Amino acid sequence: MNGVCSAIVAPLLSWYDQGHRDLPWRAQPTPYRVWISEIMLQQTRVEAVRGYFERWMQSLPDVHALAAADEAVYMKLWEGLGYYSRVRNLHRAAVEVCEKYGGELPADYGHLLALPGIGDYTAGAIASIAFGFPVPAVDGNVLRVAARLDNDFTPITDPKYKKLTRERFAAIMPTDRPGDFNQSLMELGATTCLPNGAPLCSDCPVQHLCLGYHHGNAIQLPVRAAKKMRRTENRTVLLIRYGTLIGIRRRPDSGLLAGLWELPALEGALSPDAVRQALGVRGWQMEKLLSLHPAKHIFTHVEWRMTGYYVELAEPPAELTFVTPSALREEYALPSAFRPFLTVLEDEE
Rank of each mutant, 00 (worst) to 15 (best):
S128A: 12
F299V: 04
K100I: 10
A27Y: 03
K228A: 15
S85P: 04
Q58I: 05
K228I: 04
Q285D: 07
P24S: 15
L328E: 09
T165R: 08
E38N: 01
R92D: 09
Y83T: 01
Y242N: 03
L113T: 02
E96I: 02
R45V: 03
P294C: 05
E79D: 08
L266T: 14
L289Q: 09
A295P: 11
I219Q: 15
R235W: 01
G243H: 07
L105A: 06
K76F: 00
P61K: 06
H64I: 00
T321N: 11
G243P: 02
L292A: 02
R177Q: 14
R88N: 06
R168T: 14
K100S: 07
R249Q: 14
P205E: 06
L211V: 03
S59Y: 01
T165C: 12
Q28R: 06
A94W: 06
C210A: 06
R224V: 02
Y52R: 08
L279R: 01
A123K: 02
E262A: 14
L270Q: 12
G268I: 08
I298N: 13
G124D: 07
P272E: 07
S85D: 03
I8W: 00
D150C: 11
E167C: 06
V34D: 13
V281H: 08
V223K: 10
V311I: 07
A130Y: 12
I248S: 06
T44D: 11
M186F: 13
V4M: 14
S184T: 14
